[in-house]
């Protein structure tokens, strides 16, 4: 009998648990900024849903992490130090970042409006164009040919 979650057929129960633990290891909650970690229910649901587009690579990352005794009594800090920066974890880390930094709570805490760029766009100041006067005074720099 398969131990795969029937509702989404994505990852075994062990892989799901490991993924959630990894998400917390990478971005834990913070009291200083009053923010959830990447294992938060909403964010983790987004991670699971988004993993479907890159299922094989994410599974490889999870399995690689599980091969380092993840969740088997070895301290999280010790496992994290072995996994952090390892190329095998790149896809999973990217997924966690993508989902965490589009969560409304995180964006608001960074003073970013929680919305798509289009159609409102953004304001950007013109800057001080008078600064170009000095550049013009230095004269032509292209070569005649």
């Amino acid at each position: 009998m398969s131990n795969t979650i029937a509702t989404d057929s994505l990852f075994s129960i062990e892989q799901r648990d490991a993924l959630r633990l990894l998400a917390r290891m990478i971005i834990p909650s913070t009291a200083a900024y009053n923010l959830p970690g990447a294992d938060d229910d909403l964010i983790f649901a987004d991670i699971l849903e988004s993993a479907k587009a890159n299922e094989a690579q994410i599974a490889e990352s999870i399995d690689f992490a599980m091969s380092h005794d993840l969740g088997s009594g070895v301290s999280i800090e010790q496992v994290a130090s072995e996994l952090e920066g390892h190329p095998a974890m790149a896809a999973l880390v990217s997924l966690v970042m993508q989902c965490y930094y589009r969560d409304d709570r995180i964006m608001v805490s960074l003073e970013v409006e929680p919305r798509a760029p289009f159609p409102q766009g953004f304001d950007v100041p013109q800057g001080d164009w008078s600064m170009l006067d000095a550049v013009q005074k230095r004269g032509k720099i292209w070569r005649d040919a």
Partner: peptide, 20 residues
């Protein structure tokens, strides 16, 4: 925001864990 996070993580400027 995501690109900033990935730049930081991939270049070692943003650690995993509490310092993130």
């Amino acid at each position: 925001l995501v690109a900033t996070a990935l730049t930081g993580v991939h270049t070692g400027r943003i650690p995993w864990g509490s310092g993130h």
